[in-house]
Design a binder for these strands. Sequence first.
DNA 1: CTGAAAGCGCTTACAG
DNA 2: CTGAAAGCGCTTACAG
Lengths: 343, 343
Amino acid sequence: MKKKSNVTLKEIAKILGFSISTVSRALRDHVDISDETKAIVEQKAKELNYMPNMFAQGFRSSRMHIIGVVVPKLSHYFTSTMIEGILDYAETKGYRVIVSESKNSVEKQNQMLNTMLQFNVDGILLSLTRKTANVQDILNILDRKPLVLFDKVMSKIPCTQIIIDGKQAAYNAIEHLINIGKRRIAIFKETENSFNSEQRFEGYLKALKDYNIPIDEKLIFSTEDISLEKGEQLAQIAITLKQRPDAIFAITDSCAIGAIKILNKNNIKIPEEIAVVGFSNSAHSTIIEPNLSTINQPGHLIGKTALKYLIEEIETDNNNDFQSSKTVEIKSSLIVRDSSFIV
Amino acid sequence: MKKKSNVTLKEIAKILGFSISTVSRALRDHVDISDETKAIVEQKAKELNYMPNMFAQGFRSSRMHIIGVVVPKLSHYFTSTMIEGILDYAETKGYRVIVSESKNSVEKQNQMLNTMLQFNVDGILLSLTRKTANVQDILNILDRKPLVLFDKVMSKIPCTQIIIDGKQAAYNAIEHLINIGKRRIAIFKETENSFNSEQRFEGYLKALKDYNIPIDEKLIFSTEDISLEKGEQLAQIAITLKQRPDAIFAITDSCAIGAIKILNKNNIKIPEEIAVVGFSNSAHSTIIEPNLSTINQPGHLIGKTALKYLIEEIETDNNNDFQSSKTVEIKSSLIVRDSSFIV
DNA sequence: CTGAAAGCGCTTACAG
DNA sequence: CTGAAAGCGCTTACAG
């Protein structure tokens, strides 16, 4: 199937008998060009349905108006809402977005980052894989391109980072559980020192401390690859403890939902016997019965904010060496539903 | 913050005292170049961490190895799995992917398609918005770029289309309901003639016909913007019918889940009194109680297949005018769960 | 085996 | 007000 080739400045110039320069300038509304010429050129361009070749433009200015995004997994609902935030903001700013997945593999992540470099994107938005240990690779990227971390971050990388206020959010969740009378509050968290898990764990500890509730090591459950199934397993263990918890705070919704499923199966009353709170307000949280109390993370806003800071970095003159990286916390909010609602 | 500029062929050439041409050829392992020279150049390139500027390469060959994807909404789980299929296959083929959302707006869709053109993508993967009426815009794109439709398609657009075998899938679902003894089977479908909704409706009608079950207009429910809430509303109406349905086939999972919620609320036994079957095997379907019977749509495979056909079209010599568009049906499968499991 | 030159489509400093 | 020329980084037909 033959495809029409794109109209170029050259063709317009030839048809009109102007030089390429004049046509280019006319189309960019340059002061030097007479109104008459502009009119003629614009008219012709429209007639031929001229579209500037962004490549040539970008290639020349080495500003492609394209940004690269690397996330562990696109099809996680929360991730996809962050990407929507990125896409929406990108559009208003005239940027295109190349998306890629690292699938939680460090090698893949590096490979994707290098592709982004080769592609000469203007900047990179990165959400780290679990166990990104070798920071050096990322520092190398940082030497060459503006880069902003979001959601899955790592404090020792010297760049702007956009995160949820995980510690505060967890604190609020625990405080809420205490307020409804719970004292033996279990936490389901990740083993590896993921930034988010650690933040939430800190919030948990702080809340217990502030309310003078002793910490019971038996109520601290850690797991790798946190998931619904892991939530089920941990809940199974939790309910067989001699001294059962009276509440479970899981650091992800799916883990919390796994817990609810087990509690339901064992006819343990939620929230009376054991209350449950999750994290991230996934769509699942209103499907499960009882509906899950959780922390709402504004994914769209996180994505948008990350891109906002990235574009700022891209578009400012990079001639000052002062380190402007900062950590931006996005406010989340606790949503109380039936799984922890006691009057 | 100053960024390192990228190493170019020119720099390598200067350092080594070769011409740019020689360096270029050495790096591309051209036969003309002596092994010795190749070794020197490769060594230096590695040392300087040279990365070809894909832009310059692509710009010259007008083959950017980049494809554009336009979908109504990225954060729909099924959509995101299709995109994952696209990303994975793109990677194996050395393509990058620009993603954008039409948000179910025709204007936005056109705008996105035009951006893709300007960007000179090698090809476009499109999943249509609801009510894409003006086919002309899409035909114009089709004149200029290879384009493949997937999932949300429209038969009158002359291009390759990748779809689910919706009619057969719906047929299987209805047949299954008949097999467990159901006779008054309601369908919850879309009002507007969306391709997918129509296909599924056809399957429904055919199954009833094949099994000599009379069609009852009262059991055919149509709605715009099908959703969980709409599922609730329709179910509410359905259960107040003088002659209640004994099964509900909803053409989306969320709609089916809305129905289940209402049935649960009214203490109607699922599946004994009313069985429910959904469509698409969203993650929700195993969260809801009872777990939802549904049609599994292999999103990953659909995405991959769409890209496969697109790349084929991109990479074949386009000098033959013969119309090679085809419609490819991807096989889905019925998953029976508790919402329709009767021994 | 290697190099000089043209060209992909565009922008812009320099001349007139 | 307009044009010729250089250049962004690369590849490749043409010459030697």
